[in-house]
């Protein structure tokens, strides 16, 4: 094993064998050690939100990760590999470069399954909307699908005024007994005001100088995305029960969760709000 151990010989075979063994051990424990050190650094440098999103995103089924440009019909098939952050996505910048502002003229108001999409709002994949106010602040609320899912699901735990939000980090939570649902933050910025269901918005955020909102869905993309999300919800509901038809006469129920209390809502909400 070691040169000073009784019985050790310097024969070529012995030396080769042991060298390989020590290399293997070094690689195994070395890489494990590197992982531990990196994890420690992640914890201390506050990269945790980023990682949490990365891990969650990685676990999402491919169906939920369809690229926004598939919704608009620009690409046939593409699964997002960029954590829904189009700001640093090559595919996105490539396509936008070709026909910038294709969506800009869109003004239609559509209502898939009775869910009203606001044409002046931008939507985040985590089921929030963002509205740019005249004072450059951003108002954030739950989109109609999430609103109906979370209707009776406990109390919103909103961040304190002055705290900073990051795209795809935790925005706020809904707590219901022991379980907690996370709502992703759609934008970067500082919270300047908090609301609630009754106020019609949840957060007002000051994005500061940097208000790049390219990653949010808008215009013609929203309707196909919402339709697909309703389909995803139907699949999730069907998975746990005997196949439930969500749309009652084509309109989504106001409080879906209350209508099917027997389902595993913790799991369904996590899936729908991209917590996976």
């Amino acid at each position: 094993m070691l040169p000073w151990i009784y019985g050790f010989t310097w024969q070529t075979g012995n030396v080769i064998f042991l060298s390989i063994f020590y290399c293997v051990v070094a690689v195994i424990f070395g890489s494990f050690g590197i992982a531990v050190i990196r994890a420690y650094r992640d914890l201390t440098s506050g990269r945790l939100n980023e990682i949490r999103w990365h891990v969650d995103f990685d676990d999402l089924p491919e169906f939920a990760k369809t690229c926004r440009h598939v919704f608009s019909g620009e690409i046939e098939y593409q699964v997002c590999r960029n954590g829904f952050d189009c700001r640093s996505c090559k595919t996105h910048s490539g396509i936008i470069g070709v026909h910038m502002g294709a969506n800009a003229s869109y003004t239609g108001n559509e209502s898939p399954s009775g869910l009203t999409i606001q044409s002046d709002c931008m939507y985040h994949r985590g089921h929030t909307w963002v509205h740019r106010e005249s004072d450059r602040t951003l108002t954030i609320g739950l989109d109609p699908l999430a609103e109906r899912l979370l209707w009776s699901r406990g109390k919103a735990e909103l961040p304190e005024v002055g705290s900073r939000l990051h795209v795809n980090g935790a925005g706020w939570y809904f707590r219901n007994g022991g379980s907690r649902v996370r709502v992703l933050s759609p934008v970067d910025g500082e919270v300047v005001a908090v609301g609630g269901r009754d106020e019609g918005f949840y957060l007002k955020v000051n994005p500061g100088d940097d208000s790049d909102l390219r990653h949010l869905l808008k215009g013609t993309e929203v309707y196909p995305w919402m339709t697909r999300e309703i389909e995803r919800l139907e699949i999730l509901l069907g998975a746990d029960g005997d196949g439930i038809n969500l749309a009652d006469g084509g309109v989504l129920l106001d409080d879906v969760a209350a209508s099917y209390p027997e389902l595993n809502w913790e799991n369904i909400l996590a899936q729908m709000l991209l917590e996976s």
């Binding site: 590197i34 992982a35 531990v36 994890a39 990682i51 990365h54 891990v55």
Partner: peptide, 9 residues
């Protein structure tokens, strides 16, 4: 969470 992420890498 951090450990899981780093081990995956």
């Amino acid at each position: 969470l951090a450990m899981e992420y780093e081990l995956h890498r």
